[in-house]
């Protein structure tokens, strides 16, 4: 068992003499093409992120401190916000991943009407989170569609307060539904691209070796989708920690979550330090979840190198 996959190209590259350091247009071209995106990302993502990080470690007068983290922990809604965020997240991620996986498999099948299904399923891709929240608000509110339908069917006598501030179950259900509806098409698109990258002969090989549809899904499709699922899960968990628009539209401040807390410390109390500290907490949690996915959904390097 000798290592047979060494690259012989290194020697060649090393032996090439260095030319003068004048860049040709051709060499600059890729950087020029990358520049607009790089500038945009720097100005609107990297720079604010660095600023947020700095503010979280500063007092209002600009001197350095770690007090903001203590203040956040003592904030009345802090534990509630953390609990709600995690609760919503552990419900959303498995539900939407399962549904998206099912949709992607159905969309790849040769079922009748799959093109129509695909178009309908893709609609939520174009809906912003606040708009999605408002759509579901109009369904769940006391005078919303759901109450009207239930009353017309004489299933209930009076409107049910699904979104009442003390109806935790109703609020969480509505938020999870809205968020799953909004983002499952994104997960579906990611998974579909992963499924399409699996050579169809693998499925046929498994079929000819006696594997049924269910076994082929578990033993072939799913393991080969692991890298794709890893990407989808990292992306969605990161964004689920930031869940905001949907919560704002459906619950307002009745169900505090981390991102809404961060926003309210800015807009209501002008406390940028505490807002930044909440933002940093979201960043830390997202990073930890990403590291977790990278570790637990690791694929042996040998499997996918070609």
């Amino acid at each position: 068992m000798s290592g047979q996959v060494e690259a012989p190209a290194l020697r060649e590259a090393a032996g090439r003499p260095r030319r003068a350091v004048r860049f040709s247009r051709r060499q600059l071209e890729p950087y020029a093409l990358l520049a607009p995106a790089a500038i945009f990302m720097t100005l609107f993502f990297a720079w604010p992120a660095v600023q947020t990080l700095l503010i979280a470690f500063q007092k209002a007068n600009g001197s350095w401190t770690l007090d903001n983290f203590g203040a956040m922990a003592r904030d009345t809604d802090f534990r509630l916000a953390l609990r709600n965020t995690l609760l919503v997240l552990v419900l959303i991620i498995p539900i939407e991943t399962t549904i998206a996986l099912l949709m992607a498999v159905l969309a790849q099948s040769r079922l009748f009407g799959r093109d129509v299904m695909l178009y309908i399923w893709s609609i939520p891709l174009a809906v912003s989170d606040l708009a999605a929240g408002l759509v579901w608000f109009s369904i769940f509110t006391s005078h919303g569609y759901l109450n009207s339908v239930l009353q017309d069917l004489h299933l209930i006598a009076h409107p049910v307060g699904f979104l009442d501030y003390n109806n935790l179950g109703g609020l969480v259900t509505a938020i999870v539904l809205a968020e799953v509806w909004r983002s499952m098409s994104l997960v579906m698109v990611i998974i579909m691209s992963g499924i399409q990258a699996i050579p169809p002969e693998l499925d046929e090989a498994a079929e000819s070796l006696g594997a049924g549809a269910w076994q082929r899904f578990w033993k072939v499709t799913l393991p080969l989708l692991k890298p794709t699922l890893q990407v989808a899960l990292i992306l969605r968990t990161t964004t689920a920690f930031q869940v905001f628009g949907v919560v704002l539209a459906l619950a307002g401040s009745a169900l505090p979550v981390l991102a809404v807390k961060s926003e309210s410390w800015v807009t209501e109390y002008r406390n940028y330090q505490l807002a930044a500290t909440y933002a940093i907490l979201i960043l830390v949690l997202s990073s930890l979840s990403t590291v977790g996915y990278l570790l637990f959904l690791r694929t042996p390097r040998e499997v996918f190198q070609r």
């Binding site: 002969e201 046929e204 090989a205 000819s208 006696g210 072939v220």
Partner: peptide, 16 residues
């Protein structure tokens, strides 16, 4: 295919 008592060797090998 799984009930035909056949085994196939694919052009691309189709190894898992």
């Amino acid at each position: 295919p799984g009930r035909r008592d056949i085994a196939m060797v694919f052009q691309s090998y189709a190894l898992f």
